[in-house]
């Protein structure tokens, strides 16, 4: 596949963003490859109803 790009002037007035969070990005510029990946899980056992037991510490 041939892909021709002719970049001319690009003018943006104002960019207002509330939050840039968890490995996301604001890029004003050029790039070749972008790989953004995100994973999270909230399976049933993450919902604990009952006395507050501290989560087991590391190691």
């Amino acid at each position: 596949m041939e892909y021709h790009v002719y970049n001319r002037e690009l003018c943006v007035g104002t960019i207002k963003v509330t939050g840039v969070a968890s490995s996301s990005m604001i890029l004003v510029g050029d790039t070749e490859t972008i790989q953004l990946s995100s994973t999270f899980d909230t399976p049933a056992e993450s919902l604990i109803i009952g006395p507050f037991v501290p989560i087991t510490p590391q190691g």
Binding site: I26, Q35, T42
Partner: peptide, 20 residues
């Protein structure tokens, strides 16, 4: 997260969250 003003070549961002 990254606020990047300028050009770059390769971007790889990864985020892992465990909800309790």
């Amino acid at each position: 997260s990254v606020i990047h003003i300028g050009s770059t070549c390769h971007i790889h961002l990864e985020s892992r969250i465990k909800h309790i």
